[in-house]
Design a protein around this nucleic acid. Structure first.
Length: 220
DNA sequence: AAGTGATCATGT
DNA sequence: ACATGATCACTT
């Protein structure tokens, strides 16, 4: 069981060791079983890489490597290096939307420094044969942070003013709000149009594919 | 093909 | 119920 890296250099070295390997090879190193039904175990790849890199397992709303200030994200890409999916960031606070600021919010905290681990993961490739790419440690540029901050403030203002039901995935240039729940029947409390408490579908913040694609391009 | 809304597994 | 890890699946 890998221990948690104590320095960023150690983390990067660890990530370099799996560049070019298939997920089956990494699973074998770790003694992890391949998923019987990969379509259902959607988080398996991310958890495998977490294990290899020694991320703190668990479901706490924090960075994966708190002592390093680094968040880990696997990023499914096609053969041209284009992201195949949007990237989940964190849950959207719907009830205490006021009292949150960009400086203090979880989105900013998680995106302050991200180790992106690209995975060649076209759907036609069986999960065992998917290949890990070269990881890159990213910090948002001033321009990128400006966009993220603007999106976050626009979305959270709507949430704070009881407009959650009017928000869709079409809002936001880089950050979007989408459902984040076991199914569409799940409910959580939110602020309603008249300031009352309403029940609504839980939402999460996601990075658009176009945003992660552009940040990848800056490295290659 | 792209984008949005829905969903699956697991741990606390 | 809420948070993590995300991708699936349907509409446009």
């Amino acid at each position: 069981m890998p221990s948690s890296p104590q320095t960023i250099d150690a983390l990067l070295t660890r990530s370099e060791q799996i560049a070019g390997l298939t997920l089956a090879e990494i699973a074998a190193h770790l003694g992890v079983q391949l998923p019987a039904n990969a379509r259902k175990e959607k988080g398996w790849t991310g958890q495998l890489i977490e294990l290899w890199l020694g991320a703190t397992a668990g479901s706490k709303p924090q960075q994966d490597f708190p002592h390093l200030g680094v968040e880990l994200k696997t990023l499914p890409i096609d053969r041209n290096g284009r992201p195949l999916e949007s990237t989940y960031v964190c849950m959207t606070p719907l009830l205490n939307a006021r009292g949150e600021t960009w400086q203090s919010c979880n989105v900013r905290n998680k995106l302050a420094q991200v180790l992106w681990v690209p995975i060649l993961a076209e759907r036609a490739i069986p999960i065992a044969q998917r290949i890990v790419g070269n990881a890159l440690l990213w910090r948002p540029s001033a321009a990128q942070e400006t966009i993220l901050k603007q999106d976050w403030e626009e979305l959270m203002e709507a949430v704070a003013f009881g407009q959650i039901e009017q928000l869709t995935a079409r809002h936001g240039e880089a950050l979007q709000l989408r459902p984040k729940a076991a199914n569409s029947q799940v409910r959580t409390k939110a602020i309603g149009p008249n300031g009352q408490i309403i029940e609504t579908l839980p939402r999460g913040f996601y990075l658009r594919r176009s945003f992660t694609e552009s940040l990848l391009r800056n490295y290659f």
